[in-house]
């Protein structure tokens, strides 16, 4: 049994230690908000926060996640920044197919947590690991700025 700290709760899982956190979240704990897109830290669809940092859960063995504070898309809206990001996403009608957007929201929230007023270059740097095949990038950029403004 591995004990995890997910969204402020202690949970136990009997998943094999090498199972990536993503699949523990999705298949063992029924939290399907974090998505599988590549399995190789190439697309960002699986992004969660580990001790506050945007982390690709598809390559993080669950054993290594034990003892860390994990936040997922299911709870990120509980924080003021996460909520502001999600509200901005809705206001700008960011999602198209939506499959990448959990990861986008997590990366954007992590960015705004450390950088209250990101420049375009900051946004490029923080968000270029998150692929959106629907190419919603224009609106992601606007929404991040809107969220930053709403938090200022």
């Amino acid at each position: 049994m591995i004990t995890l700290d997910i969204n402020g709760k202690q949970v136990q899982t009997d998943a094999e230690p090498d199972t990536p956190l993503l699949w523990v979240l999705r298949d063992h704990l029924g939290m399907t908000g974090s998505k599988y897109g590549c399995g190789k830290a190439l697309c960002g669809a699986c992004t969660v926060h580990v001790n506050g940092a945007a982390t690709r859960s598809c390559v993080l063995p669950v054993s290594a996640a034990s003892g860390m504070k994990i936040t997922t898309i299911e709870a990120v809206g509980d924080s003021a920044i996460g909520k502001a990001v999600q509200d901005a996403w809705v206001a700008e009608n960011v999602p198209q197919c939506g499959y990448c957007q959990s990861g986008q929201v997590m990366s954007a929230t992590a960015l705004l947590t450390t950088n209250q007023k990101p420049s375009d270059a900051d946004i490029d740097a923080a968000m270029s690991g998150n692929i959106c095949r629907c190419a919603t990038y224009v609106r992601i950029r606007t929404a991040i700025k809107r969220a930053a403004e709403s938090l200022a």
Binding site: T32, I73, Q86, V90, P95, G98, Y99, Q101
Partner: peptide, 12 residues
């Protein structure tokens, strides 16, 4: 579908 797709609730 914007809200559900921004909060991880949309089902695929």
């Amino acid at each position: 579908d914007s809200r559900d797709k921004s909060t991880g609730k949309a089902l695929f």
